[in-house]
Design a protein around this nucleic acid. Structure first.
Lengths: 214, 214, 214, 214
DNA sequence: AATGAATGAGGCTTCATTCAT
DNA sequence: GATGAATGAAGCCTCATTCAT
C-alpha cells in the first residue's frame, strides 16, 4: 500500500515537474520569443536545473513542438465542444470563431505563442505552423460546408473562405497583441463576426439576429 | 578635377555597393530567415567582406529595417499608382488589393521577407511589423471611407475591415508561400475579392461586374 | 535460517548483478570506447538502472580498472597454464606468445579493451596501462631468462626483448583490429614467431622445428 | 610597395598566428591528451581567444588532424633524408629506425602526440592512426624489400616484419614515455637495433659492424 | 572604402554523480 | 538493493561586432 502510494506520488510529482517546465517554457517563449529564450531561462523559470529540463525534453525544439501541439489540441477541443452545442450551421461557425476569439482574449500569451512564436522559431518550424493554420482553416471550412449543404448560405469556395476567415481573425488578434495599450478584444468580435458572416453570403437578417441571440 | 571625378565615381560605386549589399541581404533573409542569416553570408552574397558590409550598415538589424522600409515603400507606391488610375471607390479598393496580390504573386521572396521574416526576426521588430501592417490596413480603410462617403457601401467599421481584409489576404498569401507545390496565386484573387467586397456590403451586382471589367 | 538463506540468495544475486554490469561494461567499452561510453549505456546494457550501477561501482573509472585487472588476470592465468605444459624454455616462450595471440584472435573485443581503450581512456589510466604492458613484457622476459640460463639462446637484454616482442605482437594485433576486413589472425602467427625467435638468437633449426611440432 | 610589404607582413602575421595555435595545441594535447584538452586551453596557450582559434580551424578535430599530418610529414621527410644518405640497404633500414628513435628521444611530446593521443582521441580517429602506423610500417617494409633484392638478407615477409619492427620500436618508446624516471632513450637503441636486424636474418657480423661504424 | 583577423559573450547539449524514495 | 529524477560543471561551437591595416 505504502509503496503504491509512494509510487503514485512519485509519478504525479514527475508529471508535475514536466508540466512545471512546460508552463515555464510557455510563458518564457510567449514573453521573449522562441529564439530569444535560453534553456537557462526555462530552467530558472521552472525552478529546476538545466539538466533537469533535459531529463524531460530532448531538445529546446521538442519543448516548443510539444507546447504547440498541446495548446492547439486544447483549443481545438474547446472549439469542438462549443460547436457541438449548436445546431444551426451558421451558429456553429459563429461558435467556432467566438471560441477562438474569446480564448485568445483571455489568454494573450497563448495567442502570442501560437501566432507569433510559431514564425519566430524560424523556417524549421514552418511545417508546424502550416499544419496549425491549416487545421483551423479546415475546421471552419467544415462548418461552412455544412451550412452550404443545409442551404443556409449560397455555395462558395469554403476552403478559401476558411483560410480568409482565419487570416482575418488572426490579424485582428495580432494587432491586439502588438498594441501598446490593448483594449478589450471581446468588443471587437461582433463587428468582425458581421463582416465574416456577410462575406459568406449570410442574409443580413440572420447576422443581426444570431448575434443578438447570443 | 580628376579627384572630383574619382570621388563621383567612387560615390556612385559606393551607392552601387550599398545596393549590392541590400540585394544580397534581401535574398538571403528571404531564403534563410532573419535569424539564420549570418553577416558572413550577406557579405559573401554581396561579394564583399564583412567589414565592407559594416561600413555601409551599422548593424544587421539596420539592414533589415532598411529592407523592410524600402520594400514597403515600393509596394505602397505601386498601390498608390494603381489606385490613382481608378475613380470609383470600390474599384480603388479593388485595385489596392489586386496590386498587393499581384506583386506577391510575382515576387515570392518579397512576400516572405515582409510577412514571414518580419515576425521571425523576433520581438525587437514588433514595432516595424506593426507599422507595416497598420500602414496597409489604414490604406485600405481610407478607400473604404471614401466608398462609404460616396454611398457606394453602407457605413461600417472601416478600420476593422481594413485589418480584416489585410489579414485575409495575408493568410492566403502565406498559405501559398508555405505550400509545397504552390499553384498560381493570381487565380485565387477573384474569389477572395468577391469574399472581401461582399463582407463590406458591396452589392452582389457590383462584385461580379467590376471583377469582369478588369 | 530463512533470513540466512535469503541473504545468501541475495548475495548470489548481487554477485550476478555485479557481473552483469561488468559484462555489459566490457562490451560497451570495447564497442564504443571508454570516453564515448555513457553510464546510461552500461546500465541499459546491464538491464539495470544507473543507480544500480552506482551501487556496485563507485565510479565509471572503477568499472574500467576492474575490467582491465580481471581481464589481464584471466589472460595471464591462461598463459601460465599453457607455459606450464612445456619444458623446453624456447617452447615456453613460444607458448606464451601463441596463447596471447590465439586469445586475441578469438576475442577481438578483449583485445580492443586491453590495447585500444586502455590508451583511449586518457592519461588518468597511464599507470594501469603501464602496469599491464609491463606485466606481459616481464612475463616474456622471465621465460627468456630461463632460456639464457639453460643455454638455449645466447645472453641478451631480456628486459628489452620482452618489451620489443610484446610491442611487435601488440602492433600486429592492433593492425588486425583496425583492418576493415580482418583476415584470420592465427595465420599470421607462424611468421611472426619465426621473426621473434630469430631476433633472440634461437638457432634457425629450432625455429622451423618447434613451429612444425605444434 | 608599402602595400605589398604590409600585405606580406599581414600574411606572415596570420601564418604566425595559425602556427601559434598549432604549437599551443600540440603542447596541450601532448600534455593533457586530446579529450582532456579544452578549446579554451588551446586558446589560452596560444594567447588568443576561442573565436580566434575557430577562425583558423573549423573544429577541434581539424586541429588534431592537421597536427598529426604535419608531424608525421616532418618525421617522414627526416627519415627519407637520413635514408638517402646511405647506400647499403641494411644501413638504410638502420638509418630509418635510428632517425625515428632519435627524433622521439629529442621530442618526447611529439611521441606522445603521435602514439598516445592518436588513440586517446577516440574511435573516430582510428583511421588516422591506422594510416600513420601503416605509413611507417610500409616505409620499413620498403627498405627491407630492397635489402632482400640485393641479397643482403634472406627472403621474408617484409610487410609483417615492417609492422613488427614498428610495433617493437613503438612499445619501447611508449614504455619510455610512460616511465616515471625516463632514462636516456638513445642508449636503448643499439640493443634494439641488434634485435631487429637479427630478426630479419642479418648476419651477426653485419649487426655488430654497422652499429659500430655509426 | 575595404579587408579579414580577432573578440568574447552566450547558446545548446552531455554526462558523471548524487540522493530521496 | 534499486530506481530514476535532478544537478551542475563543462564542453564545443556560433556569430554580431570591432579594429588595425
Amino acid at each position: 500500500m505504502g509503496d503504491e502510494k509512494r509510487a503514485g506520488a512519485q509519478a504525479e510529482k514527475s508529471r508535475t515537474r514536466r508540466e512545471q517546465i512546460l508552463d515555464a517554457a510557455f510563458n518564457t517563449f510567449a514573453r521573449r520569443g522562441y529564439r530569444d529564450t535560453a534553456m537557462d531561462e526555462i530552467a530558472a523559470a521552472a525552478e529546476t536545473s538545466k539538466g533537469g529540463v533535459y531529463f524531460h525534453f530532448a531538445t529546446k525544439e521538442a519543448i516548443f513542438r510539444e507546447l504547440m501541439r498541446s495548446t492547439a489540441d486544447r483549443l481545438a477541443a474547446k472549439v469542438d465542444r462549443a460547436v457541438a452545442a449548436e445546431i444551426d450551421p451558421i451558429a456553429k461557425a459563429d461558435a467556432a470563431l467566438r471560441t477562438v476569439f474569446a480564448t485568445f482574449a483571455g489568454h494573450r500569451t497563448m495567442a502570442r505563442l501560437l501566432f507569433l512564436d510559431a514564425l519566430g522559431a524560424g523556417r524549421a518550424f514552418n511545417d508546424e505552423t502550416n499544419a496549425l493554420h491549416e487545421r483551423f482553416a479546415l475546421m471552419i471550412a467544415g462548418y461552412l460546408d455544412q451550412a452550404v449543404a443545409e442551404g443556409a448560405i449560397p455555395p462558395l469556395d469554403t476552403r478559401l473562405t476558411g483560410v480568409a476567415w482565419f487570416g482575418a481573425l488572426n490579424e485582428v488578434v495580432a494587432r491586439w497583441l502588438m498594441a501598446d495599450e490593448p483594449g478589450r478584444l471581446e468588443e471587437t468580435y461582433p463587428p468582425l463576426r458581421a463582416l465574416l458572416l456577410r462575406s459568406a453570403g449570410v442574409p443580413e437578417a440572420r447576422i443581426a439576429t444570431t448575434g443578438a441571440a447570443r
